[in-house]
């Protein structure tokens, strides 16, 4: 579905990505894991065409994305749920969701139907539909951001750090939703510092280090990798190399 080859990205003179090649197949959940500043979010920003000073090849459903504007990327079905949620705090949950379908230019009645579908999947949002987005907790805001992303009927969803800043209980809620999406066959590319969680739901993962991919594989294989355990899976593994 998404094929990226030799992607190099730059922030002014600084090269953030070096020869990154990756792919995502339809119905797959693929995780990008790595330390802060490794280039994970940059990859998502390149795919959704927020960053355009790139070279390399990117194809989405056989369409060359080289000269694509970000709004056209949304039209293709590439939906980016950014880090930090970026919901509209003063708008209600309902309006936030409605704005998610802006790019589809559909009739209001269709939008309403779609919102109801989102409510079925994410019942919490129905309960809070009239509440202003800014008054939701962090976890609820993340769920709203995912719901808003789904309103754009994505072919592929790019999820940037969905667990960031959330209490553990909400992290479980968010990943529970991602599990549901996986069961529905949705295609997701997820960037996540919580590697443990990401590897639990993803089919495959790429490990990125200082702008380059150093490892790729099925998650069951990667989970046994000592370096990943040490670097990304948290406590208890520090003694391995130290």
């Amino acid at each position: 579905m998404l094929y990226i080859k030799n992607l190099n990205a730059f922030y002014d003179d600084i090269q953030a990505l070096r020869n990154v090649s990756l792919h995502v197949k339809e119905g797959e959940i693929v995780a990008l894991i790595g330390n802060n500043g490794a280039g994970k979010s940059t990859i998502l920003n390149c795919i959704s065409r927020i960053i355009t000073s790139v070279n390399g090849s990117m194809f989405f459903r056989d369409q060359d994305m080289s000269d694509l504007k970000y709004n056209k990327a949304v039209d293709l079905g590439i939906v980016h749920v950014p880090e930090g949620r970026c919901i509209f705090p003063d708008l209600s949950v309902w309006d936030n969701l409605l704005l998610g379908s802006y790019s589809k230019r559909e009739k209001l009645s269709t939008c309403k139907k779609n919102i109801n579908k989102i409510f079925e999947m994410l019942p919490l949002l129905r309960k809070k539909k009239d509440q202003a987005g800014g008054t939701l907790s962090g976890g609820e805001q993340q769920i709203l951001a995912i719901g808003r992303g789904l309103m754009a009927q994505p072919e592929i969803m790019l999820l940037d750090e969905p667990s960031m800043g959330l209490a553990p209980i909400f992290i479980n809620d968010v990943f529970g939703i991602l599990k549901q999406l996986k069961e529905q066959g949705k295609t997701i590319l997820i960037v996540e510092q919580n590697a443990q969680k990401a590897l639990e739901i993803a089919d495959r993962a790429y490990v990125i280090e200082t702008g380059s991919i150093i490892l790729e594989g099925d998650t069951d294989e990667l989970k046994t990798n000592q370096e990943i355990k040490r670097a990304y899976l948290g406590k208890g593994y520090s003694e391995i190399w130290d």
Binding site: S21, L22, I213, L215
Partner: peptide, 18 residues
């Protein structure tokens, strides 16, 4: 073959980077 070659270049690059 397109998919195979994609996987091959990805994995070759990752191996070299390592």
């Amino acid at each position: 073959r397109k998919e195979i070659e994609q996987i091959q270049i990805e994995r070759l690059q990752a191996t070299l980077n390592r």
